[in-house]
Write a protein that binds this DNA or RNA. Structure first.
Lengths: 121, 121
DNA sequence: CTACTAAGAGGATCTTAGCGT
DNA sequence: ACGCTAAGATCCTCTTAGTAG
């Protein structure tokens, strides 16, 4: 069990997350994710941390399967990116999203993501 | 504060650990360690894990400064390597080192290393 | 002795295009 | 849709040799 195997497992838990979609999130080609999952390539540290943040796991878990505790702030990077897309909030129509709105929305999104994304955001 | 800065800090805590010596431990050239500490190169995952094991820290700590807890088994990789060198134990003269001897020796070595290596092993 | 640097060789990575399911 | 695979271009890494404190 190496990095690629764990990445594959984590991604497959998200039924609607293809290699292409995940590649777009990371700014990489679909084939690159495929390489990662086959342990034929190793992402640089910046990408590695992005992956850990996305799935809410530690880098130690990704690399060695140890320290399996999830991070305190799970999914924050993904959630923030969603929030940065003005489509999702009426409050964003005028270009203003207060910190309070962001905090409240983050809670909701994190909860939904924890439930395995049964609901589409 | 990036990976290289933390590596430098950890290495400098060991007063007798030069870049050359650490490079020899990892099987790399002295200049490579220098590059690491200046954040000009990133070691591959295998080396990264070796470094974390050597200093008894998590990979998350090396890469992000978070999850600062030390690992449960500190210095085991280094200690094992020392034990694999038959010079250090009379019991190894005939090529036989029992698990009991290994365990007892590991404790002593780990303690010495925790003390900042005041004594030469 | 220690640490850093430039240069090159060698190796690794990423993408595109294509294949197969 | 999905995922995997060559191929080449590009980027990155590692070492040697050299410099400097």
């Amino acid at each position: 069990m190496k990095f690629g195997d764990r990445l594959k497992e984590l991604r497959k838990k998200r039924t609607d997350l293809s290699q292409k979609k995940f590649g777009e999130y990371l700014g990489l080609a679909e084939s690159t994710i495929s390489m990662y999952e086959q342990n034929r390539r190793e992402p640089d540290y910046e990408t590695l941390i992005k992956i850990a943040d996305f799935f809410g796991v530690t880098v130690d878990f990704l690399l060695r399967g140890e320290s399996k505790e999830t991070q305190e702030k799970v999914y924050t990077e993904e959630a923030k990116k969603i929030l940065n897309d003005p489509k999702f909030f009426i409050a964003a129509r005028d270009g203003k999203v207060t910190d309070e709105i962001v905090d409240a929305a983050l809670e909701i999104i994190v909860e939904q993501l924890k439930e395995g994304r049964k609901k589409k955001i």
